[in-house]
Design a protein around this nucleic acid. Structure first.
Lengths: 203, 203, 203, 203
DNA sequence: TATGAATGAGGCTTCATTCAT
DNA sequence: CATGAATGAAGCCTCATTCAT
């Protein structure tokens, strides 16, 4: 109850309904009137809890940002190994699951979000995550693998809706593929080791 | 050329400017006033050429839909081999390049597009494409690979903007990864043995 | 063919379609675009034939005005007898039948017509007709009878649509009642004569 | 009273001004801007009180509909005698007087009202009223008398404006004629026979 | 905490009309 | 005779926001 203990739950409820509508109909298409009506309060009531419409999105965004920030912080303290990267992917997959509507909203409203002050911050987070996965001096294709690993998990959410199967199983399959990609992008060889491999290979 | 090429091309010019603004600022955030102003015409002039704001998008969409429809049609006539699938990916990559702003617009305005009559049609196209790549009875992970192959090319467009490098080379790298994915998803073995089948098969 | 002999029948066709639409949907709700579309010409073409939208109504109105003007002129030359009045009613009923859509249009668009320059002229005609029927110094009730005789024929057109029966028979029934009203409003007594009638007559 | 009575009455005032303008200039010719200006509020304020321009008319219409509905309900409970019918006419005449501008508006904007959702409902009311007056199996002429009785009261309102005389007296005269018509249309005899019926009645 | 009332800006759309060709 | 292209004015409506209560 840490997050919502507060007091009066209206604040919460506004966030819930807003997120629901934003992710269903899009940010611009969702009016405060609609949100208020669904909550059976007045528009003015919303303004008691949030200074502006954008403020609602920001508040939603912060609940999302935290898990990712945590993930980024955690990764920063780990050694930059393949295992760490795989774990990043795994944790990200879970973050996604636990905040699905928000990610869906972010995905489907990129254009709207871009103007929304949080746009920049969201992008930063994603780029930082990317940087955690890929080695800056690696081949282009490997960088693509990392980017793809990350975004395939987003895309999966929406594109796999039309594949039959248990959601959790689908998530696992997506995770599996993403892990493969990140693994392939970070070849063990890379750093000396690989005793038997004559692989004059790369730097 | 004072007013830019004169007559008959206004229709074109509207489409161009609209696409530019839609993809820059988003569909909802772009008003017809803005489009008209940039073209130095009246809003009413837009309505001479397009019945509706949505109509402009539709017209843009049709220029996009054609290459994809062609691709789908072409694929329908080919044998369902791995080579065909790889070629589908290759051609899709090129379709994407040649209509980049439009795809970017579609990607970043999914929420807006969804309500836009063409939304459904676009989704269909994508699902059909997916179905061309994946075998319905294959493992979940393989299905994910196909979906990812397709969408990684979209994601690539936007997420790779922040990786330095020649755009064309990046595209090739993205294509390479997508091809790998589709290849991995369609293992040659599949229907293992078939010892007696002289299967000269294929094309 | 006197009326329409002219040349090119487009002029005619515009009037026909316009009247049809005006009387179906109302004057304000009918746009020149609609008329043009139904005729499969351009709006601009309408402007070749008529200077303004109002001009179309005026031209329609004139084809209506003539029969009524004729009726008024004819009545002016007749003796002011009951028979004349009955004949006026009879002829008016026929005028109505032969220009039904136009009258319907006038009836249902009074508000619109009022601002339309012809409004005043139409009202005049009606008042003149009224004056032909009623004696200015007669009782109020008799004046009402005359007004009612006239307008019942209008109302009849619209209100009797929902009574089953042959249109022509309905018209006759309406005419019969109107004639009765006008007859009752013009009591034979009125003017001395009538030697045998002890009738201390009226008020 | 600087801004006229202050709070809470805005809803009312909108209705008043709207009815005034609608009936003066017609529904289509009256813009919300005009209404707002006359009230010294913003257009948006109108939308706080009414969802739609049409909604204003509907609300006006409901104030009208009630008296008529009451009349219809009342008549439904009375025996279907001539006296009842005469009373219906009398009451209708009074309903008309008490909502004159609205009826005038309805009369002069039939075309506009027809598309207005309430159009149908208004027509129904009138037809029901007609049915209360006339016997379905009576002669056509008698049916016309009933219809005319009803509509003459409408027509009277507008057409008698140009006859000099006290309004109340004119109304009475109109009522008298309408009553006559309804009386003539409902001959006491009707079903002659009824041998045992002492019904001195009939002609 | 919340509401009722209102506003200013701006959205999309439609209309009658014009004019060069 | 007619069209293609465009305009200026105006229409209805919706939105985010404010503020006194």
């Amino acid at each position: 109850m840490s997050t919502q203990g507060r007091r009066g739950n209206t604040h919460q409820r506004i966030q819930d309904v807003a997120l629901e509508l934003f992710s269903e109909q899009g940010y611009e298409k969702t009016s405060l009137r609609e949100i208020a009506e669904k909550l059976e309060v007045t528009k003015a009531a919303l303004y008691y809890h949030f200074k502006t419409k954008e403020d609602i999105v920001i508040s939603l965004f912060q609940d999302l940002t935290r898990p990712i920030d945590d993930l980024i912080a955690w990764a920063g303290e780990q050694p930059r190994t393949l295992e760490t990267k795989q774990e990043v992917i795994r944790r990200y997959s879970e973050a996604l699951r636990s905040a699905e509507p928000l990610f869906r909203f972010m995905q489907e409203n990129q254009a709207a979000v871009r103007e929304l002050s949080i746009g920049e911050r969201f992008k930063e987070r994603m780029l930082t995550l990317c940087d955690l996965l890929k080695e800056p001096d690696s081949q282009l294709a490997d960088q693509v693998r990392c980017v793809t690993a990350l975004f395939s998990m987003h895309a999966g959410m929406f594109a796999m809706q039309h594949v039959e199967g248990d959601p959790e199983e689908k998530r696992k399959a997506i995770l599996e593929v993403a892990t493969e990609l990140v693994t392939a992008a970070n070849p063990p060889s890379r750093r000396p080791a690989r005793p038997d491999s004559a692989q004059t290979a790369s730097p």
